[in-house]
């Protein structure tokens, strides 16, 4: 069982950089969402002008535009909910939290990074009720570092899979990169993630299989 007694304070600079990167990514995506909504509203105005000048408008077109407003607004609301959870994860470094929700949260926020590299990201999180007592921000940071290490060497079309399960007094988070990337996972990012894991009394190891490279993060469940 991993040892939860050796937790250290966060590295403030690294933590701030991580928070900044996630904030910038979310704000970029939100800007895109708002831009789409503004363009659609501009289009409505243009179509109204066109109708005033004799052009016919198919009601189906109006319905499509309405659905687009709704789709983008829902996308924005969902993203903001995830960002809110992320932002609140710094509130308290010693709380009980549910691992599945945490992994879903950081996976959603990491989606844009994967999409920019044309990678497919999958989550396999069947086990609910897996509670951990620890630092939810630090755990998010470690998982994101692992995701970043997995993404870096993968070519477009590659697949990142993240899963989590309980194992006695520990929780295991697996992050795999398939096909096995060439070159190997970036040493600097992996070493940093290993070091961060240790500050939380957790362990990170990397195994190289024929089909994928897998990083396994073993987190002590603490007083749960």
């Amino acid at each position: 069982m991993a040892d939860q007694t050796d937790r250290e304070p966060r590295d403030a600079d690294q933590a701030l950089r991580f928070f900044g990167r996630m904030s910038a990514s979310v704000s970029h995506e939100l800007n895109n969402i708002m831009t789409i909504i503004l363009e659609k509203s501009g289009l409505m105005t243009d179509l109204a002008w066109a109708m005033e000048n004799g052009r016919e408008l198919n009601p189906e077109r109006v319905r499509e535009i309405g659905e687009s407003f709704s789709r983008q607004a829902r996308r924005g609301i969902e993203l903001l909910k995830h960002f809110n959870h992320f932002a609140h994860s710094v509130d308290d470094p010693a709380v009980t939290f549910e691992l599945k929700a945490l992994v879903e949260n950081i996976a959603r926020l990491a989606e844009r990074f994967a999409a920019l590299k044309k990678l497919d990201m999958k989550t396999e999180l069947d086990e609910a009720g897996l509670n951990i007592h620890g630092d939810p921000f630090a755990i998010r940071h470690i998982i994101f570092s692992c995701l970043e290490a997995a993404m870096a060497p993968l070519a477009p079309g590659g697949v990142i899979t993240i899963s989590a399960r309980g194992a006695g007094g520990d929780a295991l988070v697996h992050i795999s990169a398939a096909p096995p990337p060439e070159p190997a996972l970036p040493r600097e990012i992996v070493d940093s993630a290993i070091k961060q894991a240790r500050t939380q009394g957790a362990f990170l190891d990397v195994t190289h299989g024929a089909d994928a490279v897998v990083m396994t993060l073993t987190i002590p469940r603490g007083a749960c």
């Binding site: 831009t35 789409i36 501009g42 243009d46």
Partner: peptide, 16 residues
């Protein structure tokens, strides 16, 4: 790469 954005912008320019 945002299809809804570029498609809408294209339509607005085409209307003009």
């Amino acid at each position: 790469d945002e299809e809804e954005l570029v498609g809408t912008l294209a339509e607005r320019l085409a209307l003009r």
